[in-house]
Design a protein around this nucleic acid. Sequence first.
DNA 1: GTGAAACCGTACTGATCGGTTCCGTTTTGT
DNA 2: ACAAAACGGAACCGATCAGTACGGTTTCAC
Lengths: 180, 180
Amino acid sequence: MAVNARARLLSTAETLFYAHGIRAVGVERILSESGVGRASFYRHFAGKEALVTAVLEGRDVRWRAWLSERVAAHGGHPLHLFDALAERFATQDFRGCVAINTMTEIADPASPACRMAALHKTRVIDLVEQLLRDADVPEPGERARQFVLLMDGAIVTALREGTPDAAWRARGIAEALLAA
Amino acid sequence: MAVNARARLLSTAETLFYAHGIRAVGVERILSESGVGRASFYRHFAGKEALVTAVLEGRDVRWRAWLSERVAAHGGHPLHLFDALAERFATQDFRGCVAINTMTEIADPASPACRMAALHKTRVIDLVEQLLRDADVPEPGERARQFVLLMDGAIVTALREGTPDAAWRARGIAEALLAA
DNA sequence: GTGAAACCGTACTGATCGGTTCCGTTTTGT
DNA sequence: ACAAAACGGAACCGATCAGTACGGTTTCAC
């Protein structure tokens, strides 16, 4: 129980922040649920804000890896992005996109958390653009931005509706877009 | 200074909640910035949560009225929804959609605030559906849900980018959708 | 085996949270 | 003019916030 304090902090914080929001989760709760001592926390992180940015960093890497893997599993076509989203929307713990939630909650665009969230989105755009290039879709740059707009709209809608339907709705729109 | 305490509370709270988030704004700040006494606040509202739902109610009514008016001013076609959004995105105080921000921040779907936010979105869908009917667009029900997904995607994107570009991007997608 | 490093738990700080209560003043209806 | 209602200000309440300090324990490298 005395090793990996940092990893446990990151894991517990990620779960709690995602489920309840960043402001809603105090350091107290993260410590008690992770079993990490208070001093150990401040030995690993300068403060709560540093923990938040570290969580967002890890989330960015892991989420893009997951998305790439699932799209590839479905066949690798850009439209399969929405099949991956549908899978995600159906999971029990789904509560939207960490980056979107962070930007709407923290408000200050200059804060490290918001900067990290914005960076995540640009990286996702790059990922989508590469998928579009691989599929020989014309104007992949602009198309990628359109696709991410659709994905974000689907995420917000799925959070509100509590069903994966929004993924299929967004997929239908994307199909119309590619056919045009 | 001793009249309209309720109205001043609602106005101040709406501004602060929208700019900084609900959790980030304490009752203390609302009182000092509105000039309303603490006792007066709890005479008008059962608590902070009641104030939040009242603010969301007012916002819902006012925002739909504003949207209808702006769409009509642009010509009344459903595509003009995105012209209205572009106007909104360009305003200085734009910080996304109150309903989306509330749902991502409060997390609990059963809370009065989230219920009110969800209700707002369904009312917006109804508004969009009526616009589509008036324009003789086929399948207005499903189209309305697609349009609102596009609008929500545009709102989230505009919040991230800080420019009105997302409105034009969403408009382009909507045009492709109507042409298909 | 021994010392250093990492660890957990507890007690504490000052600030702020939402909410209650009381008091004296101002506004309003009649 | 006068009473009732609405009001602002301030002193409180217990709880929780992020962060610090200290003391005793476990882990690990040499």
